[in-house]
């Protein structure tokens, strides 16, 4: 996921909250030969709609084509395309790491530096959570790896346009 992060684009797609809509959106990507790097779906404040945040790694010309094709889907209400520099992006990581009594201090320190949280502690492991900019989440993940990861989940990005210029 982190290779070619410069070339990634973020599409936020407002869709009708109806059965099968995610399949239509995801299916369109495969049909037109695009790879989805990450995808996150959630309801919006209006219960009729959901927002799908899709990260794709592509050159800009074919991206225009996929945006136009997406726009043709009857259940797609609107699409906005965010260049990474114009977006505030966040991602959530949740990981269970090997941590016996001897290693706990080290992990807790890392958690402190990154502003993460310890959400569960067992005899030989602990579970930590970090929400942050994707690059920060990448760094955190790398450092956790050296401690030994039991299980790890990332949500994929969600994003909104930056407010630059707006007051």
């Amino acid at each position: 996921m982190r290779d070619g992060a410069e070339r990634h684009h973020i599409l936020t797609v407002l869709v009708e909250n109806k059965a099968g809509v995610l399949a239509r959106v995801a299916g369109l990507f495969s049909r037109r030969g695009f790879n989805i790097a990450s995808l996150a779906v959630a309801p919006t404040d209006d219960e009729r709609f959901s927002r799908i945040t899709i990260v794709v790694d592509v050159a800009s010309a074919p991206l225009e084509q996929i945006v136009k094709q997406l726009d043709k889907l009857v259940n797609v209400v609107s699409i906005s395309e965010l260049a990474p520099e114009e977006a505030t992006e966040r991602e959530l990581l949740i990981a269970t790491v090997e941590a016996g009594p001897a290693e706990r201090g080290q992990i807790v320190q890392l958690v402190g530096i990154f502003g993460a949280q310890v959400v569960d502690v067992g005899a030989e492991a602990m579970t930590v959570v970090l929400a942050g900019a994707p690059s920060k989440v990448d760094d955190f993940e790398d450092l956790l790896r050296s401690s030994g990861i039991v299980e790890l989940q990332r949500t994929g990005r969600v994003a909104l346009p930056r407010l630059r210029g707006r007051r």
Partner: peptide, 14 residues
């Protein structure tokens, strides 16, 4: 059939 024809219809409904 809605899944089968998803990519070859303008839209379909169940």
């Amino acid at each position: 059939i809605t899944g089968v024809t998803m990519d070859i219809t303008k839209h379909n409904w169940l």
